[in-house]
Design a binder for these strands. Sequence first.
DNA 1: GCTTCAATGTAGGCAACGTCAACAATGATG
DNA 2: CATCATTGTTGACGTTGCCTACATTGAAGC
Lengths: 195, 195
Amino acid sequence: MQTRRYHHGDLRAALLTRAEQTLREKGPGALSLRELARDLGVSHAAPSRHFKDKQALLDALALAGFDRLDETLAASREPDATFADRLGGFVRAYVDFAVANAQLIDLMYTIKHDPAASEALVKAAQRLGAMAEEVVAEGQRAGEVREGPVDSIAIPVFTTLHGFASFAMSRVLSPEEVASGLDAVIAYMLRGCAP
Amino acid sequence: MQTRRYHHGDLRAALLTRAEQTLREKGPGALSLRELARDLGVSHAAPSRHFKDKQALLDALALAGFDRLDETLAASREPDATFADRLGGFVRAYVDFAVANAQLIDLMYTIKHDPAASEALVKAAQRLGAMAEEVVAEGQRAGEVREGPVDSIAIPVFTTLHGFASFAMSRVLSPEEVASGLDAVIAYMLRGCAP
DNA sequence: GCTTCAATGTAGGCAACGTCAACAATGATG
DNA sequence: CATCATTGTTGACGTTGCCTACATTGAAGC
């Protein structure tokens, strides 16, 4: 049991970590700056030194979420595979992340709604779209995807992906439906992309 | 300027109407029972006679939203048309509603998240899925849609629809992208459904 | 090594909120 | 006309986000 120092050391990171935990466990409504401060053994106004606003904390949380999702997706890439495998991998990685971090994803897209969304956040979100575009473009180059403007294919594909993930998160679909439906969705995507 | 009666007349309906207006104009965060009461010229505890909770009001709002969406979609049906037209009509109606009621749709799906979602609400949400299934099933009967379990086609389709609407609402896609992208999305759906 | 000062944390206060309990007016039912 | 459930009011409590003024700290410059 160490004696509490006046300075926490890395309160900012601790706040983010703890906030994400509460978000995951009790939902966004249960997120209170004061409770966060109490949990970390710090005065109720301390968080304001690191986040001017509650919204600022949520923004930072969402931004970190986008960054992690971007990394996850980038890491799941397999350069030398058929389009079907590449797309399948991308979709599975996205859906897995969404299911494992439902509340966070919700927050991410809710915040992006806001016209006042920070530039960094918009940028991180756009990177997602760019990655999807890249998969499609590569498929086109390999002749496995129909020709035409990349957007006219990437948008429907990403749209399907996000919609499915959204249903998976919100339990409109049961976990079994998600597991079994995933293959059908990927097959459907492939048909929609086929030359 | 009529003198204020002690009884409002139909406070419940007035609360819902006003709440939806505030939701639309200022977002869900700006919804306060007390402010609602003030706006309607009623004491701050009056709303509790009609909604035991803030959550209860939100639930009622979401339920009304599902009902209206169901009606809108049902009204947009054209029984004697090709599958392409029927699907196109359905998609357009859904997307139009979503764009025109972005905050409301958000609320609807957010609330459905909640494990404690009321039965009526779950039911209203499922009617949506059923309508989509019906369109697909009819297409199958007419031989315009590939065979197989209805779910394996209806889920991807509805998923794409919801994802696109979601992006349209959240302005990930600009209004122009929505307008122009809609045709591409419908074409892509049709390819995914084709026999 | 001392001073200075920006960064970080604390203490107290404010208005707003959701909720509750106790009380008051109303109008429908007998 | 009396009764009484429904609907609205009042006042209070605890919690929250945020603000301002103050305290502690550690590092940079002399």
